[in-house]
Design a protein around this nucleic acid. Structure first.
Length: 179
DNA sequence: CCCTGATTCGC
DNA sequence: GCGAATCAGG
């Protein structure tokens, strides 16, 4: 596709990823096609989407409302106090400790859900490199928030006991299964 | 300086 | 409708 326009597919993926909590830049990278984060944000706003759950990298809440750049704007009347933006609790992002690459999806291991097929109540544990075409989601029943039981336990990392070397290696081994 | 989203405006 | 430029902030 030479003209990276907003096709149904891309818009669908955009919506999904956006509501998923992905950042604009991340979505832009995922969608590829030379779309920038500005394009993503622009489209998001055009679609009426806006403020959702959680940002990305840093877990900070950048929610402001009206900002006034000022490019040759004659006395603009006071802008409305901004529309109500949803502020929901976000599911903790999975900790990806040095994720090398997604080698082979185990035999019966889940991970066939793509960004397009991932349903609302399907585990959204990412599998593989988001920028790769092989990228998929766990897809199992999301019983714990946005993740299935198993992935929820990994997402909500209990905390690593210090000095528990056996436990550490065990954790590392169990984590490997999720990649 | 990295990142985030928000807004405006020229196309 | 689209997105770069810009803004505002963590």
């Amino acid at each position: 596709m030479t003209t990276a326009s907003w096709t149904e597919d891309r818009v669908g993926a955009l919506k999904k990823l956006w509501l998923e909590g992905q950042s604009a830049s991340q979505i832009a990278k995922t969608l590829g096609g030379g779309v920038t984060r500005n394009a993503v944000i622009g489209k998001v706003h055009r679609l009426g989407l806006s403020g959702r759950a959680a940002p990305s990298q840093p877990a900070r809440t950048t929610f402001r409302a009206a900002t006034r750049p000022r490019p040759a704007a004659p006395a603009t009347p006071v802008q409305a106090p901004s529309a109500p933006r949803r502020i929901e609790a976000a599911a903790p992002r999975p900790v990806m400790t040095a994720q090398p690459v997604a080698p082979a999806p185990a035999p019966e291991l889940p991970g066939t859900a793509t960004v397009m097929t991932l349903g609302a109540h399907m585990c959204k544990w990412p599998i593989g490199d988001p920028s790769s075409r092989e990228f998929s989601f766990c897809g199992r029943r999301a019983s714990e928030g946005v993740y299935c039981g198993e992935h929820a336990r990994v997402a909500y990392q209990p905390q690593v006991r210090k000095g528990a070397k056996d436990g550490a290696s065990e954790l590392a081994r169990s984590l490997r299964r999720y990649i």
